[in-house]
């Protein structure tokens, strides 16, 4: 579903943010992407979503080269950033309709999905209000609803649980699991190692722009005979 081949990003021709990253995320997988602050997680996600062009390497989404056919590649994923910075002078419903129009979601389907997801995340009664009146958590929920709306095969989520109340976090985790059970893929970054441990099939640890480890969660835990938290600390502190 998602393939990164030797992807690197250099700022100002000197500072290497991501160094020759190779990853392959399979369909039906929840893939955790973890690393300390400044490790290159957000840069990698920005490259995956087309927000930053890689200095070198290739990104394939559902078999489509992101650089060669960006529109086609972007039809295959939706993205929730770590900060809900969106245009807030419109109503919540306008935002969702905007996303649905961009992904060409037909009228009947969009209505059902908007009603379903906004009810699930308890923002259905705020859809007629301006987004600037929303709390941080509500904005995050709106972004998540927007990302679920097109039902793209790949979800890319950067710290999606930050700002969510426990019930909304539970719903999101369930949706991620259901999405993968139906053949979809989730690529998400998080600092919440307990959640990564709980729901991810595979995990990649990145540190100082380089991939430190990438394997099934259970296998990593067996190999190191430690908790994921301890393994993470060991791998990222040594570097």
């Amino acid at each position: 579903m998602l393939v990164l081949e030797g992807v690197s990003k250099t700022y100002d021709g000197k500072r290497m943010a991501v160094n020759r990253l190779n990853l392959a995320v399979n369909a039906g997988e929840i893939f955790g992407f973890i690393g300390p602050n400044g490790a290159g997680k957000t840069t990698t996600i920005k490259m995956l979503t087309g927000l930053l062009p890689p200095t070198e390497g290739r990104i394939m989404i559902n078999g489509v080269d992101l650089a060669a056919s960006p529109v086609e590649a972007k039809r295959n994923f939706t993205y929730v950033p770590d900060h809900p910075e969106i245009f807030t002078a419109i109503r919540g419903i306008d935002y969702l309709n905007f996303i649905a129009d961009m992904h060409e979601v037909p009228t009947a389907k969009r209505r059902t999905r908007i009603e379903k997801y906004t009810r699930m995340f308890a923002i259905d009664d705020a859809l007629g209000e301006m987004i600037h009146s929303y709390s941080h958590g509500m904005k995050q929920k709106l972004l998540i609803c927007g990302a679920l709306l097109p039902q793209a095969p790949l979800f890319i989520l950067d710290e999606p649980l930050v700002g969510l109340d426990p019930l909304a976090a539970k719903h999101l985790k369930e949706i991620m699991v259901h999405h993968c059970a139906a053949g979809g893929t989730v690529f998400f970054s998080s600092h919440l190692l307990a959640v990564v441990d709980q729901i991810c099939d595979r995990v990649a640890v990145i540190n100082q722009g380089e991939l430190v480890i990438c394997d099934r969660v259970e296998r990593i835990k067996n190999d190191f005979a430690q908790s994921l938290e301890d393994i993470f600390l060991e791998l990222t502190q040594d570097a």
Binding site: T49, G50, L51, K74, R75, T78, H83, E85, I86, F87
Partner: peptide, 16 residues
Amino acid sequence: REGKAFWETRVLPVAT
């Protein structure tokens, strides 16, 4: 003018 909301349209399936 888009400021920090600039990313919104960049991740959508819209030709540049």
